[in-house]
Each structure stands twice: as C-alpha cells, then as structure tokens.
Amino acid sequence: MNVRKAIIPAAGYGTRSLPITKVLPKEMFPIAGKPAIHYIVEEAVAAGIEEVLIIVSRNKNVILDYFDRSLELEAFLAINNKEYLLEKTTLPKVHIQYIRQPFARGLGDAVLLGERFAHGEPFAVLLPDDFFVTGGGVGALEQLVERFYKTGKSTVAVQKMEKADLHQYGVIKPGQAQSGEASDITDIVEKPKVDPPSDLAVCGRYVFTPELFSCLHSVLPGAGGEIQLTDGIRSMLKTSPCEALEVKGTRFDLGKEEEYYRLIEHYLKNR
C-alpha cells in the first residue's frame, strides 16, 4: 500500500526559542523568504504524499492562514499591475487538513490525533523542528518511503551523533544490519541520561504501519510526564518489526539558534 498521508505535529510551545515563539511559531521561522513548514510540506510532496494533517494548538492560527489563499492580497496585486508577484505566493500542491491538540501532552499524543486521518493506511510523520538539506539528492522522507516499499516495515530515520548530544534525542539499539544502511531496531530509549544504547539518534522522520496507533493508546506518560512517541515505538517492537535507516543529508535543529543561523547561511549561499 502506498504512503499517501503524512502527519506534521506543530502544536508545541517552542520553549527553546523564546521569547519570539510567544507570537511567532517556530514552524514559521523564515528561511530564505519562506517559513520552515513550507519546506517540510514540500519534502512530503516530493516523497509522494497526497494528504497532510498538521497538528496545531490555539496559538498556531498563522499556519492555517499561510496555507490559505489571500484574496485581499491577490486583489491588491491585480489593481496595482503586480500579478507577476503571485508566483511568490504559490503553495505546495497537496490537500492539507488541521486538528487541534487541546493540551500539550506530548508527541505521541499529537500523532495519535491522526488515527482517523490515517484510516488504516501506512503514514509518515515529519517533525518540523528537524530540517534536512540533501544537496539536490533524494529528500529525507523520500529515502524512508523507498525503504518502506522494499520491506513493508515501519522505518525510522536516524543519524550518528556525538555522545554528549544523545541525551536530547530518542536513541535506538540496532540489531542485525540489513542492506541499504538500515538495521532492525531491538530497543529505543527516549533521552537517555546515561549509557545510550548506541550513537544513532532518531531525527524527525518516520514511516509507520497503522499498528503504531494501538500501541500509543496503551502508552503511559513517560519522560516529562508526556505521551512519548518513542514509547509507542518501543511497545510496537513487541509485535511488529521496525527498521532504522541512516538518512543521507545534513540535519539542522531549528530549536538551536546556531543551527538555524547556519541553515539560513546555507540557503543564502546556494540561492
């Protein structure tokens, strides 16, 4: 079955980027003239996604406005003979839906809100904090989708990281290595404080079979008192296989100021 649907959780408070995130969601941080979430949706479309569900909260209405038409702007440009600027307002060609996460109960809870949207199909998850530049190659999500079509297994994107940084991420314990730089996941730990199971950190791109939802239903609050997606994956491993794929490309964490600036610098140099 094709991966046609993607969930983008965008309901968080963005506390790492305060104070600007009091008024501007981090998903709307500008990168070379477009908000970050625009690139994330484009990545999904490039991977064959036809429908996107964006999980928002009460203070994220600007995301809905961005992906809507502005009739006032179009009329203004027409009156002033500036229709040529309309191409700058072109949006990714994909059907977008929205749902609110009423309480900040964690990433796992946000993904669970997409159960009806997925409707029993395999689906992707893209975290807008994680931004990938693949240098004109295959996008991060597309790499996962291609792997899923070969195996039919849930697939999680990982990259090697320094041990000092692993406590900030979910970290997998790899099992038997498969072809194509993928390996079976035997365990996964959310933000390990000591003794991480490997140097492979989960980095914001996933393709799941619908079995994940039943596992998330049974997950208890974990790290930070939240429903963790990592714990849902860990539960799923008991009954369904899951692979980790080392995705090719440079990853930027938009929640880290220095990485955000480096990403802008990259786009300015390569416009």
Results as ranks from 00 to 15, higher is better:
Arg147Ile: 04
Ala177Leu: 15
Glu121Ser: 05
Lys269Gly: 10
Glu211Ala: 09
Ala32Leu: 09
His38Cys: 08
Ala223Gln: 12
Lys256Arg: 12
Cys203Met: 10
Met161Gln: 10
Val156Gly: 04
Ser179Val: 13
Tyr98His: 02
His38Ser: 06
His95Asn: 13
Pro102Thr: 07
Val189Cys: 00
Asp68Thr: 13
Met1Ile: 13
Leu220Ile: 11
Ile54His: 07
Pro192Gly: 03
Cys215Ala: 12
Val202Tyr: 06
Ile54Gly: 03
Asp165Thr: 14
Glu43Ser: 06
Leu24Ile: 07
Lys248Asp: 01
Gly249His: 05
Val138Phe: 10
Met28Leu: 07
Pro25Phe: 01
Gly106Arg: 05
Lys93Glu: 14
Leu268Val: 08
Ile20Gln: 10
Ala157Tyr: 02
Ala36His: 08
Ile96Met: 03
Gly204Pro: 06
Thr250Arg: 08
Glu226His: 14
Met1Gln: 15
Arg205Tyr: 11
Leu53Tyr: 02
Asp165Val: 11
Phe123Leu: 02
Ser17Cys: 13
Ala36Leu: 06
Asp165Gln: 13
Cys242Asn: 04
Asp68Met: 10
Lys193Cys: 13
Ile99Gly: 09
Arg251Ala: 05
Glu259Val: 02
Ser17Val: 11
Lys238Trp: 12
Ser240Ala: 13
Tyr261Glu: 11
Asp195Pro: 05
Pro102Asp: 02
Val3Asp: 02
Pro197Gln: 04
Gly180Trp: 00
Leu141Phe: 00
Phe67Leu: 07
Gly136Tyr: 06
Ala11Lys: 07
Ala118Tyr: 00
Ser17Phe: 10
Pro196Lys: 00
His266Trp: 11
Lys269Gln: 12
Arg271Asn: 13
Tyr260Val: 08
Gly232Ala: 07
Ser214Gly: 14
Ser57Ala: 12
Lys248Ala: 04
Ile40Ala: 03
Lys82Leu: 15
Arg4Gln: 15
Ile7Phe: 05
His95Phe: 15
Arg4Trp: 15
Pro221Gly: 00
Glu43Asn: 07
Val158Ala: 03
Ala157Val: 08
Glu146His: 10
Ser218Asp: 12
Glu259Cys: 01
Phe132Gln: 00
Pro241Thr: 02
Glu72Phe: 11
Thr250Val: 09
Ile20Asn: 08
